[in-house]
Nucleic acid binder design. Sequence first.
DNA 1: GTGAAAGCGCTAACAG
DNA 2: CTGTTAGCGCTTTCAC
Lengths: 353, 353
Amino acid sequence: MSAPTVYDVAERSGVSIATVSRVYRNPDSVRAQTRDRVLEAARALGYVPSGNARGLASRRTGVLGLCFPDYADPAAESGGESDDEYDDSAVMLYSDQIIRGMERAARRHGYALLIAASLEGGPESLVAKVAGRVDGFAVLARTVPTEDLELISRRLPVVMLAGPREIDHLDHIEVANTDGERELARHLIRDHGLTRLAFVGSEEHSPDAEARFRGFREACAEAGLPVPDAPDLRAPMMTQPEGERAADALLDRAGERPQALLFANDQMAVGALRALERRGVRVPQDIAVTGFDGIPLGRLVRPALTTVRQPMRRLGEEAVDLLVRRLTGDRDSPPVSMVLPVSLARRASCGCG
Amino acid sequence: MSAPTVYDVAERSGVSIATVSRVYRNPDSVRAQTRDRVLEAARALGYVPSGNARGLASRRTGVLGLCFPDYADPAAESGGESDDEYDDSAVMLYSDQIIRGMERAARRHGYALLIAASLEGGPESLVAKVAGRVDGFAVLARTVPTEDLELISRRLPVVMLAGPREIDHLDHIEVANTDGERELARHLIRDHGLTRLAFVGSEEHSPDAEARFRGFREACAEAGLPVPDAPDLRAPMMTQPEGERAADALLDRAGERPQALLFANDQMAVGALRALERRGVRVPQDIAVTGFDGIPLGRLVRPALTTVRQPMRRLGEEAVDLLVRRLTGDRDSPPVSMVLPVSLARRASCGCG
DNA sequence: GTGAAAGCGCTAACAG
DNA sequence: CTGTTAGCGCTTTCAC
């Protein structure tokens, strides 16, 4: 009943355990005939090398990891209102895309991928579990307590994804939030001739939203428009319902109605679209709406949402490449901080397409 | 430089390694004061338990696995023609959905998920790698040589996903291909009053396509329509280009033009849509088109594709539940064969919506 | 509640 | 090219 080991295979094929090991590790270092005997015995016994034992002995696992928060999914936050029309089988989450990117890249380098979403703390926390079983791993921003990361990163390569750099000496990859929003606002101003723009940020501590707001300000400054000190509105959370509420609030304000609503993310923008439709305000004729992220849902809604697309897939790939670099010698070159370019998706909600 | 171990922690906190181990495994079995000392020492040293060592000693990893083929993605097969409009960030692949389902379920049960797409064979094959590092795993149909599975399943629980049951004594989950296609055809016949239906299958050995064809036949029989012995056409592969070709071929045939084209999968149906548009044949007015699978792309094309949606997400969840059952005692109850229900998505391409 | 000792199954020098 | 010999870092009886 208990699984066969190298000893069983060695005995059955009349060689030593070292040779069995070699057959699996470096087949060419064993005479073909011997190798075949070993393989045959292994086959007969149903032998499968224990990854744990190998890992223990060789101090490497051949596995890379990814920790992501449960809530890392803007799309998942929509909560109760699961429009059957947009059932979640269609909605690709951030984490899904990162996983895909990492999996591909990992495979190219001969690694497998271990994924885990945040559980609860304690000594048996998520990170510990992952960290103990991989050669290196990526963490989506704010998934893991900084303190834990600090600790773990002393023992194996860690790369932080998205979000701001929380720990100086860790490798870190983010997207060009500021550039993206600046370009988006610039497009609205220059190509559509809009001048009264409103930016909706977040009350939550969101460095991403802040960076985007900075981009917005820069575009205003460039164009000689008034440069706001703070977002026109901060939503309590960056969800669809809050976007809906935000749109209502902004339109109900006294004074001239803005010509464009720039939301810090797509979820809110999609919510806003709904509010505007309800109020009979036409998009983009009466008002333009934009988001940020490039979630697939943005393409499904009407009008399709103009937004800034984040290259999540590439984020995952770069993460793996970085980890592999660290694992293959380059252990102590200075920490990398990489900013991936984003791209503007001009769709109907701003008057394009 | 080398990572601290239980010994280091034990020494620093003045206890034995057994106690250190207990703190991580069963905190309550250690006096609070002792525990805190240990935890503090661990923290100070940057101690992270080695998953490999734990796995070796305890004979369990707390990890479940998934092997999926590289080509498991109907959506990925479209190959060269990457319509920028449908960039892949929007396209959720089967494997992505299964991963998501498995990850969620695994997390609920306290497991992490190890994923790996097929690499190459050899002793160091994909399965071996995964199999050696998990407590049990799921395999997408035809990812892994039957022979290997046969072997491995002697040592740990394996569940096969989708496709037909290749190995009798393995747990197996599939979707209701026959039921789904039957219902789809019935809908065309009863609700839209169509009588000349053409089914496009595959030349490849595809039990799924065959099962769907059976459903088609049953619906025909039920309705008193002629029951074909074989699909009206078998495409060499179930891809978009082949679907395009198939539509052309079918329309070029002598005799009355069919009123509906039922494709064995969405990819082909999407290709067909393109062919029909090119020829100026209107869908659904001149001819109805249906697919099978429920890929997101089907919702983006115009007209939106009527299809049968497979619950991939649930497939993943059920797989995990099954594995966990096997891992918690129920080792030798007879193999399960589960068929998940599918659902009809009536959209514009059949005349609905 | 805590310690001592014996492996878990493999890799990694080092010999031969 | 193959065998010998130590561990890798932890869990697990079994004592105390």
